[in-house]
Design a protein around this nucleic acid. Structure first.
Lengths: 321, 321
DNA sequence: TGCCCAGTTTGACTTTTGTCGAGAGCCGTG
DNA sequence: CACGGCTCTCGACAAAAGTCAAACTGGGCA
């Protein structure tokens, strides 16, 4: 298969069409191929990230509400997806926005940490292709053997594929049965290296999980519903990168957390840009916990959630004064 | 004039069309306007940089020749515009390529130094619009009062306009009649501040001028043809940001240079990324001088010039060994 | 108030682009 | 060497996007 010349042709066609502004038939005659082929090449060029079409996400930060939230929660940037209008599906809208924001935040040479969850996978799924060079996508937490399509390694790989980047997977279970085994595994050079490399990331992408029976941790069998309920009564407020955090965003002191293989929260906080995306309104408390714990610098949420966050912040400062 | 809502609409239309992949008629019915308006909004969105369409310039660096040149001249990156094919106009091709490369090198928050010349203006002219935030474009050298459209301030302003960036102009003449006056003007706070700010740039864009009667310096009246010939016999090899350099890329010790108001070469060398673009084959010696003087880290040239550079480099190392 | 201007918006028309099935070239294989 | 299976390519048609003159809007001004 002549893959090289094809790639070359795609590139040339894309260059003539997009950079020089020629019409498809002009490109076709330049390259001595049919116009139909040109159309096909251009589609491939878009699909492989040889050409990049991106729209500014300014609109969603320009919102007054977004500005207020940035101030109130001292975040670096907030994007708010509208929900009021006759938008077909607000959670898709959030994912599409998050994907654009993510691509805007990525720079060449970056090292990107990616966690796991339905939200992250949805973002990967709608993310457009790009041709970043020297980008590495690293997996932030161990795997779950569940048959879900949004396993940690899949999220990492899919995003790496879209960006044409190197994916650094990490094949350890997310949760082990004993604390001892987890300790031993964490001490393994392969694992330790990966985990300590997390702090060197330039950008992180994750969502936050709820502490209830619907949580992935329960669905994937890492915890039983009753264990989850127990954790909740012990102060669990949310899940970040597979770890349970309390309302202050600190790792909850519990057996489960000690059995988890994942990036430490301190490492996450060492990452300059931490993009948190939340789709479900029900994740209000978990998100508050993540923000309290300084695990979020950039936030993408729906309008409704944004309003709740702002109301909460206002109420808190009022009480304090 | 309702400029805000219009901008908002353009943004929304662009978002629905490019990010969500809706068709124009679907966008039109979502926004309750006619499809024709949508088409118009989308054009505006492209023109103002709300949407960005960029094609990877990989193809032009992937060339073996480009790699060899990078090694031979120890440059960070080289792009070579093909000239062999039935390309309409090689110099336009170089300008289009340079504009793409330039946009690829710019990052948010950058401070960009721009010099002046026909080449730089041509690049500005074909550059697509972008919506970079926090970018500042600064003028690297004083002005010439000539009626050319590619005056230093025009080059700066045009590029700033295209990027939606802040343009920092600098209203001093490029050349003064006495050395004394030049010294005095350079000591002026406004000027001194600007000149010392050059070293803080992250990216510079310039071409290199030839030392002959066709030079802009002659055409704009800064030097007479005979003065130019004199300088040439004194060792002048090229012109960078309005200053005459010798074959080693050092400022030539001459009255003219002492009368010029421009960024010092040392400041230029302090800029991390220095993009030099050369269109004319006749500028071989000036370009060699600029490279020798370390004034170039990123280079865009035509295929013919690239070959000459490589041949020259090979001959030089051969002689040396 | 009424008029005019500059900038929008629209419907109708033209041009450009996307797509699909048919056909052509190109292997490895039986 | 003929045979599927494969991808790539093309022509023709359908769909989508671009364009333009005419109608419309709303604000400034006599």
């Amino acid at each position: 298969m002549a893959i090289r010349p094809a790639e070359q042709l795609i590139h040339k066609a894309a260059w003539l069409y997009y950079a020089h502004g020629l019409r498809q038939d002009q490109v076709a005659s330049q390259l001595n191929i049919s116009r139909a082929s040109v159309a096909m090449y251009l589609r491939k060029a878009r699909e492989t990230g040889i050409v990049n079409i991106s729209t500014s996400t300014q609109l969603f930060t320009d919102d007054v509400l977004a500005r207020k939230l940035e101030d109130a929660l001292s975040l670096d940037a907030v994007w708010i997806a509208p929900e009021n209008d006759h938008i077909a599906d607000p959670s898709t809208e959030i994912a599409v926005l998050a994907a654009s924001v993510f691509l805007e935040l990525v720079k060449k040479g970056d090292r990107i940490g990616v966690a796991w969850g339905r939200t992250v996978y949805m973002i990967a799924d709608v993310m457009s292709y790009a041709d970043l060079q020297d980008v590495t996508v690293v997996q932030l937490c161990g795997n779950l053997g569940a048959p879900y399509s949004y396993r940690p390694d899949q999220c990492t790989m899919e995003i790496a594929r879209r960006l044409n980047a190197k994916g650094l997977n990490f094949y350890a279970p997310l949760v082990l049965s004993t604390e001892e085994l987890a300790r031993a595994l964490r001490a393994e050079p392969v694992i330790r290296e990966q985990l300590s490399g997390v702090g060197e990331c330039d950008l992180a992408l994750y969502s936050v999980g709820a502490v209830d029976a619907d949580s992935h941790l329960v669905k994937c069998g890492a915890l039983t519903p009753s264990e989850m309920a127990d954790l909740r009564s012990q102060g669990a407020a949310g899940v970040i990168a597979g770890q349970i955090i309390d309302a202050e965003g600190k790792v909850l002191d519990c057996s489960y957390n000690r059995r988890v293989i994942s990036a430490e929260l301190a490492s996450l906080r060492a990452i300059a840009r931490r993009l948190v995306v939340v789709q479900e309104d029900s994740k209000f408390e978990p998100l508050l916990a993540a923000i309290a714990g300084g695990l979020c610098t950039h936030l993408v949420v729906g309008a409704h959630m944004a309003q709740r966050l702002l109301d909460h912040a206002a109420a808190t400062t009022e009480k304090a004064s």
